[in-house]
């Protein structure tokens, strides 16, 4: 059997890893940074972001779910009628996730 090598397993792997990160970690960050601190329930301190370990963690937290989005969005839009342009759509989605990864690294490095 002649198997063609594709990048598909890598995209599925990133989708899956992003799904796990989003499922376990995103809700508490929205509660904390989007609701509890702005509403004054908890004190707001930005000191924690100075830590390199925290920034490395944030790099994983932000970048992986972007690939999760790229995979799901590209497949869902295809299911919703964009199948004829699924190739350029996939390039746009995964390309955005790669760009997002670079921007995330840049933002975290300049804090």
């Amino acid at each position: 059997m002649n198997h063609r090598k594709t990048l598909e397993p890598m995209w599925w792997g990133l989708f899956s890893a992003g799904g796990v990160v989003a499922a376990f970690l995103i809700p508490i960050h929205i509660v904390l940074l989007g609701l509890a601190i702005p509403l004054g329930w908890l004190p707001g301190s930005a000191e924690i972001f100075q830590s390199w370990i925290v920034r490395l963690y944030l790099f994983v937290l932000i970048s992986l779910p972007l690939y999760h989005w790229a995979h799901r969005f590209s497949f869902t839009m295809s299911d919703l009628g964009l199948r004829p342009i699924r190739k350029p759509l996939a390039i746009l989605c995964y390309g955005s996730a790669i760009a997002g990864t670079v921007v995330t690294a840049w933002v975290l490095l300049r804090i």
């Binding site: 995103i26 929205i30 989007g34 932000i62 779910p65 972007l66 989005w69 799901r72 497949f75 869902t76």
Partner: peptide
């Protein structure tokens, strides 16, 4: 499937 859009928007 669209939960990913809201998560990405938040990020």
């Amino acid at each position: 499937e669209f939960t990913s859009v809201f998560i990405a928007a938040y990020l």
